[in-house]
């Protein structure tokens, strides 16, 4: 499609996946640039997946120095102090990721992502952030949206047995196969801020309870000025109080945000590796889909809870943004 052929080396290496998504998609992948922030276990899984898939470049941002605790679910860090001492998380992960696929350019960008200007984000097709405060999520999402080019934006977080992905592809067109025909579809995504502003009572009654629980904790961390994940069971009374307020404002029964679920999220500050693998896998798959323009991308939240084993897609958007893919061209 772009005229450029895959090299022999690429065809041999990517053989099995070209059989899944085709040579065109592989070419698009190899020209894509991904920015990643927040190198915890889930993001390590995600990075592994896209580096193996053969994206063009991956840029890592995370200036935190490597501490013992970071090792728990992150297989990109070897537990050898001499290796990681004095290095940042991004640097250590970069070294490991490079080995997975020499055709992918993996690099580190230093600095505070919140201070990066809009033009910085223009270099990327996809931005994935993790371990971010509510304010940071909104800020980076806004910056991506200010650009004339479409930059896909994702947030991802895992707490104990639960994980959440948010997707903003803005105005997204893609093609998909329906029976023998290829049809063109269009989806409109709300920003993160727009999505979480949708009044809870306007949401379908069966929306995942995880959605509400994650918002309560996110807001709690925000008003208490905590770092993401910096909570414990001692915060439960404060959390329950906030839940009450939010539920009242939104006229939602508090039973939709069960105590037990909030407790689990508070205790589970350490990542649970199987959930990292699952969430990192789903996120990798979604990023690949969005770049290649093939297949239905998820809109706009995904939740997984190892307790019940369900992996749920939730569309959290104002009804007028259209919750189904609109068909723009059906001339077949």
């Amino acid at each position: 499609m772009d005229g450029e052929e895959l090299t022999e080396q690429e065809t041999a290496l990517y053989d099995r996946q070209i059989r899944v998504w085709g040579a065109d998609a592989q070419r698009r992948l190899s020209k894509s640039h991904i920015l990643v922030y927040g190198m915890k276990g889930t993001v390590a899984e995600f990075c592994k997946n896209i580096v193996l898939a053969g994206v063009g470049s991956v840029t890592l941002v995370d200036d935190r120095v490597v501490a013992e605790e970071a090792l728990s679910a992150n297989f990109l860090i070897l537990p050898d102090k001499n290796q990681y001492q004095g290095k940042t998380l991004a640097e250590v992960c970069c070294d490991s990721l490079k080995e997975f696929n020499h055709m992918v350019h993996v690099s580190v960008e230093k600095g505070d992502i919140s201070t990066f200007g809009v033009e910085f984000f223009e270099k990327f097709d996809t931005v994935v952030i993790s371990c971010c405060s509510l304010a940071k999520k909104k800020l980076i999402n806004q910056k991506c949206r200010k650009l004339s080019k479409r930059v896909a934006f994702y947030t991802v977080d895992c707490r104990g047995s639960c994980g959440e992905i948010f997707v903003d592809l803005q105005d997204y067109k893609y093609s998909k196969k329906k029976l023998e025909e290829t049809i063109e579809c269009q989806l409109e995504y709300p920003s993160f801020e727009e999505a979480i502003s949708v009044p809870w009572r306007a949401l379908p009654r069966r929306v995942s309870k995880l959605y509400f629980a994650m918002r309560v904790i996110e807001l709690f961390e925000d008003v208490e000025d905590r770092n993401p994940g910096e909570t414990s069971i001692a915060d439960l009374p404060g959390i329950l109080k906030l839940r009450k307020e939010l539920c009242e404002t939104n006229s939602l029964s508090e039973s939709q945000v069960p105590d037990a679920l909030l407790e689990r999220l508070l205790i589970g500050t350490r990542e649970f590796p199987p959930v990292c693998a699952i969430i990192g896998g789903i996120l990798g798959q979604e990023v690949i889909k969005a770049i290649s323009g093939k297949g239905d991308p998820l809109k706009n939240f995904f939740f997984f809870d190892a307790m019940d084993g369900k992996g749920l897609i939730e569309d959290i958007s104002e009804p007028n943004t259209g919750s189904q893919a609109a068909l723009i061209n059906d001339d077949m």
């Binding site: 099995r16 996946q17 059989r19 899944v20 998504w21 899984e45 592994k48 997946n49 193996l52 898939a53 693998a277 699952i278 990192g280 896998g281 789903i282 990798g284 798959q285 690949i288």
Partner: peptide, 9 residues
């Protein structure tokens, strides 16, 4: 057909 993500999940 085989991709890394499905295997990871």
């Amino acid at each position: 057909h085989a991709v890394a993500t499905t295997n990871a999940i």
